[in-house]
């Protein structure tokens, strides 16, 4: 796609600057036609930098920043889960529910039955996802806006129930839980989880299965006319998405050694959405990118207290209104283009 940018004149004639897409995409966005190692590198480098960079980070950062990185990964996973659910046309405002469900299940299993994290985390992942999916099953039949409303209300209601009835430790929560062996294990566990979600979701969306999900977002009636049970697909998507959220909730329970009503706090609902919107929704890399910008920024600005929430709430609104493609998609578009001068006269 050629696009004229600006013109210049010199003694040899008139030139205009043209911006072109690199000609390595064939047939569709996911199939490339490569003719040289240089072009291969061009595709591999950004992915390699992400993977290797993230693997090295815990080795080079001090403890405080490693903890920030773990937090960024946690939010990244919630953001990826949000983006995945959204890519099937479901708009979740309650990532905290998935997070809290996993967190509390792990906490209860560990606190009352003394199971080790080796068991609590997988069990909480599956059970948490099952509970969340069953809870939202009736809402799947309604338009997206209802899904948003119910997901928003659910975690906040659960917090009040836990506070009022004093189950699972009430306001204080369950504490003195089994910790994870050490910071390295924690760091590499979340990094592995981020990669699993990022590349897993991307792969899934590129497959024919993902095609159905994208079709549902476009036009669910046409998908039904194609003989596909959209509710079954939506339930599956919700299960996968909430499993990611529940996993990271269970992880955080053991990482902090405590689980309380803060697991359902609105931060875990809004921050992932903010990250995805700022980074760029729809391709998962943007969600992760957003998390790695916003979370360190928030930690850096910890001194300003609750102004942080004001900041990222408004940032989210500004992006959704003014820059709907997000930072990542913008950068990607630029990366796939090059500019050169062409003679015009």
């Amino acid at each position: 796609m050629a696009k004229i940018r600006r013109e210049k004149k010199d003694s040899n004639g008139k030139y205009r600057k043209e911006r072109l897409d690199r000609g390595i995409k064939a047939r569709s966005d996911t199939i490339f036609a490569l003719t040289s190692y240089r072009e291969a590198l061009y595709l591999v480098v950004p992915r390699a930098v992400t993977i290797i960079g993230l693997l090295i980070l815990p080795l080079v950062l001090d403890i405080w920043w490693t903890k920030v990185m773990i937090m960024a990964c946690v939010i990244a996973i919630l953001a990826l889960s949000w983006d995945f659910i959204a890519s099937a046309g479901m708009l979740s405002l309650g990532q905290a529910l998935f997070f809290g469900a996993g967190g509390y299940l792990a906490g209860v299993l560990n606190y009352y039955w003394g199971l080790s994290p080796l068991y609590t985390i997988p069990i909480a992942t599956i059970a948490g996802a099952t509970v969340c999916t069953l809870l939202f099953l009736p809402v799947l039949r309604l338009r997206g806006i209802y899904f948003a409303m119910v997901t928003f209300a659910m975690p906040l209601i659960l917090v009040r129930i836990i506070e009022a009835t004093r189950i699972w430790g009430g306001i204080e929560g369950l504490s003195a839980l089994t910790p994870l062996p050490n910071l390295w294990v924690s760091a590499y566990l979340v990094i592995a989880a981020v990669f699993a979600c990022l590349f897993g979701f991307r792969r899934l969306m590129d497959s024919d299965y993902g095609l159905v999900l994208r079709g549902m977002m476009d036009n669910d009636q046409a998908v039904m006319a194609g003989g596909i049970n959209i509710y079954w697909y939506k339930a599956q998507t919700l299960f996968i998405g909430s499993a990611a959220g529940a996993f990271i909730g269970a992880f955080m329970t053991h990482y902090y050694r405590i689980v309380g009503t803060s697991a359902f706090s609105i931060d875990y609902s809004i921050l992932p959405v903010a990250c995805t919107v700022v980074g760029g929704p729809g391709n998962f890399a943007g969600a992760m990118f957003g998390a790695f910008i916003l979370v360190p920024l928030c930690e850096y600005l910890r001194a300003i207290g609750s102004w942080r929430i004001v900041l990222y709430s408004f940032l989210m609104v500004i992006f959704v209104v003014a820059v709907p493609e997000g930072i990542f998609n913008y950068l990607e578009r630029k990366y796939h283009q090059f500019e050169h001068w062409v003679k015009t006269g």
């Binding site: 959204a86 405002l93 338009r143 806006i145 959704v320 709907p324």
Partner: peptide
């Protein structure tokens, strides 16, 4: 764009 409408009111 329902997604954007919801995020905008939610964020604000």
């Amino acid at each position: 764009v329902i997604l954007s409408e919801v995020i905008a009111t939610f964020g604000l």
